Simulated assay, not measured.
Amino acid sequence: MFVIAASLGVMVTIFVLAIMYLFKEDETVDDRLKKYTGSEDEKRLREEELDESFWERVLKPVVEKVSTFFIKFTPSGIKDNLRRRLILAGNPLGLGVKEFLALQGSLILILPGGLFITLFFLGAEAKVLFTFSLLTAISALIIPIFLLGKKISERQSQIQRSLPDVLDLLTVSVEAGLGFDAALVKVVDKVSGPISEEFERLLQEIRMGKPRRDAMRDLGKRTNVDDLTKFITSIVQADKLGVSIGKVLRVQSDQIRQRRRQRAEATAMKAPVKMLLPLILFIFPTIFIVLLGPAVIKIMNSFSGMN
């Protein structure tokens, strides 16, 4: 009986192990097939690719290839200057040097080519074709640079206009007992615009371990606004000498408001000079026509009556 029971136990154990082995072998084969066919990975990659935008799937690879071509033939000095101007503009649309050069190069290739083909099918002469294509290529080269310069001016103007109010908020926050970094957090929460974005980046750099003085100097280089640069210099000196930041903020706020008032007065003084040219070209001739027109007509009628 013992031998029979032991034999049955061994047989059952072997049977169970055989079934487990068969199932394990099937699972291994399926996994191996999935590994070689890559059906799940391929499906997942296809879904991730379809979830991306048209820019990421189609346009961005083309832009990268075009930018690689143009970056090779662009001098390093021009690239450094362009990188600095893009930083001053706040990197609009997330454009870097490669993307900007690719955009500029694409415009130089596409616009003149499209105009050339259009004029060719319209039957234009060869001189007209090459002249207009050349002018279009020059325009495609200049327009992105002009728009970038305009963006820089607008951003600096926004920072300069909002700086006095931001300094008032900083002054009130510091005088209420907050630290300078906490006051900057308050500004980021309450104020919107480029200056808030720059202060937020300043706080991120400080949290990552960058010294406050270096981070604030980099802020001045990124914006290149005179009032903000003077404010940063005053804060750095106060931090170095141990002067009360609240008093420095109060003084800087008053000085910046005074400088803004002076700029407004200077702009108002320039208004008569700027109005002189439209007066001479457009308004004075109209006044002369209205005032002297009837007299000239009467004189002409009197001379015609005498004849």
Rank of each mutant, 00 (worst) to 15 (best):
E47C: 03
T13Q: 01
G9A: 12
A18K: 11
E42W: 03
V10L: 10
E40P: 00
R57M: 05
W55A: 04
D51H: 07
E47D: 10
A6E: 11
E42V: 00
I4Q: 13
K60Y: 14
G9I: 11
I14R: 13
E47H: 08
R57K: 12
L50I: 09
K35C: 02
V12Q: 05
L33N: 04
V62P: 00
W55G: 03
K24Q: 06
L50P: 06
V3Y: 15
A6D: 10
G38V: 04
F15C: 08
V12H: 01
R57H: 05
Y36K: 06
V10Y: 05
K43T: 11
K35R: 10
K60C: 02
E47W: 06
T28E: 14
A18R: 11
T28A: 14
R32F: 15
K34T: 00
R44P: 00
E27Y: 06
L45R: 13
W55V: 05
S53I: 03
D30T: 02
E27A: 09
A5G: 10
L59N: 06
A18G: 13
D31Y: 11
V58E: 12
V12W: 07
R46K: 08
K24V: 00
L33R: 14
F54N: 10
V63W: 10
V16P: 03
A18Y: 13
L45D: 12
R46I: 01
P61H: 00
Y21D: 01
E47F: 08
A6V: 13
D31H: 07
E49G: 05
K35D: 09
T28F: 10
E40Q: 07
E47P: 02
E25F: 08
S39P: 00
F23L: 08
E52T: 12
K43M: 11
D26M: 10
E52L: 15
T13C: 06
K24M: 03
R46E: 04
V16R: 10
E48G: 06
F23N: 03
L59R: 11
E48C: 02
E52Q: 15
R57N: 03
V16W: 11
V3T: 15
K35S: 07
E56W: 01
K34C: 00
D30A: 10
V63F: 15
R57D: 04
S7D: 05
K24C: 01
L22C: 00
M20H: 02
V10W: 03
L50Q: 13
F15T: 11
L8Y: 08
K60A: 15
D51F: 07
D41Q: 14
V58R: 09
M20A: 03
V12C: 07
V3I: 15
D30P: 00
S53T: 15
R46Y: 06
D31C: 04
